[in-house]
Design a protein around this nucleic acid. Structure first.
Lengths: 192, 192, 192, 192
DNA sequence: TATGAATGAGCGTTCATTCAT
DNA sequence: GATGAATGAACGCTCATTCAT
């Protein structure tokens, strides 16, 4: 069984450059940036771009996958902090949600692009990592009595798949406040 | 003083057909549906479409305006039921939100299109009607002690501008449950 | 033989309005003005315009024909002045050429439009009147010894079909000076 | 310092093909030929055409520029012949005018297109070369006593900007005869 | 392998012309 | 006869994708 030839160093470098350029361009100019523009921003020719990602859809999917991987890392770190006893699960979950919404603000366009182009996640592994970590956080929070017993990962996904990522920061914060209430066992504090 | 000539019956019919076809097509295939496709779906030629709406932006703006008008009607009806003493404000508000979420599978895609195209509403009147009615509902609910005192119309907009309209019915219901909790003074019931 | 029904008074009026509006519009905005614009300028609907002139080409041809008729009138008047002994043929011919060039300056666009659309003159009668009058002027001038014996109407047509109608007045005057020299028996005066 | 990458051979070939096809098509079918037709005539796809000339205006401007360059070359060659004592200035000037008229069946239509599209020459250098050479020819002819002392380059431009390029050869010859007379100090010969 | 020129379907839009009212 | 809404081919132009160099 011929092992897959080790990728050339410059090819790897190009892939990186393309991915980050694609992220930047889509973020900056919306999902309709041309492949030429992405290529130019990456400092390569279109042909090279197509060698790495056979269609625009593939490229966008890869950008999204990177985002998902970062989210998974974040979730796992949060879980680790809880597991080590250094933090309360509910707090970490809320903070995690907050961070996801913030970073999605930047990546909003990328997600929109993914939807538009019907990109398939592809990187299920990262998604599974994230799910596992979030599930563990939820369970811990439920054990603490903070998180409502019927809450599941699906709820978390449902909520932040609808985060108002294109609204100003104040709106995003307010949204988080309103929305996390539904996950807890407490009502929102009235007055003070 | 010559009154503005009454529009021809078939022209009115076409305008209607075009508006609804546009809503459907944009919802179904995203903001990038071609004008030709919209025209075909409406059963007219492109030229006709352009006679009624000089640019794609205008067409999308008109679709949005229609939707907004329907929402305003709905909100006013809900308010009327509350005012007549026949319904509790919080219940009507929740039901209203529910209907909007059900109805507006269209809305999301169309609004995205509007944003992409930089369309300006133009129909501020309808938006104002809706705002007024919802504000009144909120105040009534707050008087009842059901709705959290810091809730404003902006919150309502914020929430249903992010409704998961493209998700299955069960997800939408669940979303409504989670999200309305943040508007109330009560926590969600545990088990029962 | 049924005689052609006398045209209705308003139809005649419309025809006139359309012709003059077409002339103005084409002059003002070039040969690419839309039929709708011409119709609007004439105060009628496009349908009416098409009842009078079945194609844009026909309309333009009619506008050109009007111009030709005016030129024929002018040529005949010049000839009459010469015949009555009140004017020298060469002078009248030169003046006639000058007037044609001046009025063509306005009608330039109309002629361009005629060419673009491949309009066929149609009003041969007017053209024949003009030709006859100019021929007579030439003969008179040749009898006077002013006009070069080999000059024919074709030369006149050749020259003013190439008049620089879209140039400023000074250029048109200069052009006339340069060009009429070839028609005479004299050289252009040097100095003084 | 990296020198501007040498253009690919086939790209150069395409550019040439496009330019000549554009000249031919515009000449043959007027300024309104579609870009598709020009592309087809050049044997390339529209996209290629747009790669070389970002707008129709640019394409037309390039065609005009090419023509102007050729005229400039011609004028300079004529001047060289005069300077070397091998030819009389007036003869060269007349011959030059004759060649321009023959050559520029293209020119007229293309210039009309340029005007319609509001194209800016851009290649002022070539125009300046032509002007300088023609001016020198005129001065030489005036020194010889052949050319009328008040003639300037502007006159030459004025005349051949109105050359009857779309007329049969005999008409063009006749036109040249009539028109050059105005430039000289002599009258046209009568009979012989 | 990287390059970037070429491809061509598709887009939003216009406008001469037709035809129901 | 007049109206003006409808038609649809055509236009200038874009851009994801292919392929000769």
């Amino acid at each position: 069984m011929a092992q897959a030839r080790a990728p050339r160093a410059d090819a790897v470098r190009n892939r990186r450059k393309i991915l980050s350029a694609a992220g930047e361009q889509i973020t900056a100019h919306g999902p309709d940036v041309g492949m030429d523009e992405i290529a130019a921003a990456a400092g390569v020719a279109v042909g090279t771009l197509y060698r790495h990602f056979p269609t625009k859809t593939d490229l966008v999917a890869a950008v999204v996958a990177e985002h998902v991987a970062r989210v998974a890392d974040d979730a796992e770190a949060a879980l680790a902090r809880v597991a080590s006893g250094g933090a309360r699960a509910m707090d970490e979950l809320a903070a995690f949600l907050g961070r996801v919404v913030e970073t999605s603000a930047t990546d909003r366009a990328v997600k929109a692009a993914a939807q538009t182009l019907g990109a398939t996640p592809g990187d299920r592994a990262a998604e599974d990592r994230a799910s596992a970590a979030v599930t563990a956080l939820i369970h811990a929070g439920q054990a603490d009595g903070d998180i409502h017993p019927d809450v599941t990962v699906a709820d978390i996904y449902l909520l932040f798949s609808t985060a108002p990522t294109d609204q100003p920061a104040t709106a995003r914060t307010r949204w988080l406040t309103l929305v996390t209430t539904g996950l807890t066992t407490h009502a929102r504090a009235t007055s003070t």
